[in-house]
């Protein structure tokens, strides 16, 4: 999910950076005083999630948790994901600093969309809403990673068809984990899910 340095074309990097700047601006504007602990917590969760590998079958994947950030934070997931990705880039060399904008956009846009799509149903069933937002966010992130590479004009032959199926295991697991986290939070710390 993290696109390395020097892979994307200037155009794609530029567009990604612009989206990220805009999104981060809106996110910070929406940030209220009482949101800070919540945002720090989810940023940390997002930061650490990428280090957790889930081996399934021939491939092994890592958690992303952008669905979780999205459903709880909405637009605030932009600054959250930007900060987490920045630290991942400098501490672990995941992705890169030049591709930071595009990577953030790829993960934060689905988060914001899933906020608008699934947030209204959160109170009805925490697990199912969580599952759907996790599943949806990863699928959309994969699609936008694919599009970033496609518009750069490389790697097209490598996946094409496979992309739509290959992401399924991660999306599925991510969905289940997001669902469990949300239903757990709803029982123990309901105030995180408010506002």
């Amino acid at each position: 999910m993290h696109i390395s340095e020097g892979v994307l074309s200037g155009k794609v990097l530029g567009v990604g950076a612009l989206i990220t700047i805009g999104g981060t601006f809106i996110g910070i504007k929406n940030l209220k005083f009482e949101d800070y602990p919540k945002v720090s917590l989810l940023t940390s969760a997002f930061f650490v999630a990428s280090l957790i590998h889930i081996p399934i079958g021939p491939t092994s994947t890592h958690l992303v948790l952008n669905g979780l950030c999205g459903i709880i934070l909405g637009w605030k997931s932009f600054p959250c994901i930007l900060l987490a990705l920045f630290l991942q880039a400098i501490l672990f060399q995941f992705g890169g600093l030049t591709s930071l904008g595009t990577n953030t956009a790829n993960m934060a846009i689905p988060a914001v969309i899933s906020y608008y799509l699934f947030r209204p149903f959160l109170k009805k069933n925490y697990f199912i809403t969580g599952f759907l937002s996790g599943f949806f966010s990863i699928s959309l992130s994969c699609l936008s990673v694919f599009l970033s590479l496609y518009f750069t004009g490389s790697f097209f032959k490598n996946f094409g068809k496979a992309i739509f199926f290959a992401h399924l295991p991660i999306a599925f697991i991510e969905g289940i984990i997001t669902g469990f986290i949300l239903s757990f939070l709803s029982k123990t710390k309901k105030e995180i899910l408010e506002g």
């Binding site: 399934i56 079958g57 491939t59 092994s60 994947t61 991942q88 995941f94 496979a162 399924l168």
Partner: peptide
């Protein structure tokens, strides 16, 4: 089964 068959791409974040 479908998951296992199609998951040949890697979604890791770094290659060495």
């Amino acid at each position: 089964f479908i998951f296992l068959t199609f998951s040949s791409l890697s979604f890791c974040h770094k290659v060495n």
